[in-house]
Amino acid sequence: MQPILKARDLVKRYGRVVALDSCDFDLYPGEILAVIGDNGAGKSTLIKAISGAVTPDSGKIWLEGREVRFHSPLDGRHAGIETVYQTLAMSPALSITDNMFMGRELRKPGFLGSVLRQLDHKAMESFAREKLNELGLMTIQNINQAVETLSGGQRQGVAVARAAAFGSKVIILDEPTAALGVKESRRVLELIQDVRSRGIPIILISHNMPHVFEVADRIHVHRLGRRLCVINPKDYTMSDAVAFMTGAKEPPPEPLAA
């Protein structure tokens, strides 16, 4: 099987710090790939290189077999890659709807939209409401309330809903359950499986081992800026995984294929 997203020899340096050290990456169609690694291992940089938020110094990325070069997050998004960043990337003073449609606003049909460039607030609101209900992550009273008036968990819910609603090829979730309570986390995990059942592969970055082992098909262990190994969660225990990523244990000799 061909990977839907493939990266080879990615290098990214910040001054003298090497965040990505000729890192490889493979994501196969329809799978949930977890990326785990210690703090500072370069997980976030890897994700940003894939989503377009960071341009790698060297290395190549292929999406569905075609080489891609992203120069901005917008490029990645146009290619069908949606990302929920750890920082959530939302504008606090703007409404939920504004945030969901940032950079891809809907305009009214006809003269109002094409000439007066008027936004179709109604259509965007009903779409946003529908997506949030689908997610079932929260009861939002007012879809036009500012994001800063939401709790941390609700904000995360909006960010996940945004990615799930628009991601067509790949969805990347960077610590999607970090700020969530037990029940909200459960909903996000259900959502992840729901998205996979629609055939869209997911990259999940998480420190939460139970969550990772529950939903992931494969686990990419990241260490010191590169892929240390890829393991199947059925063959290893959580403590093995932690041992690999902290360097307490040597990785298995052959990287596991899909």
Binding site: A53, S72, P73, L74, R77, T83, Y85, T87, L88, A89, M90, S91, P92, A93, L94, D98, N99, M102, G103, R104, E105, R107, L116, R117, Q118, L119
Partner: peptide, 28 residues
């Protein structure tokens, strides 16, 4: 009207609010 009703107007607010978040969520 432009600030309230057009995408450009929303982007002006987003850039002022948090430029990094705006960049990541697809604003140029």
């Amino acid at each position: 009207y432009v600030l309230r009703q057009t995408a450009w107007g929303r982007h002006v607010y987003a850039v002022g609010d948090d430029p990094e978040a705006a960049e990541l969520s697809g604003v140029q």
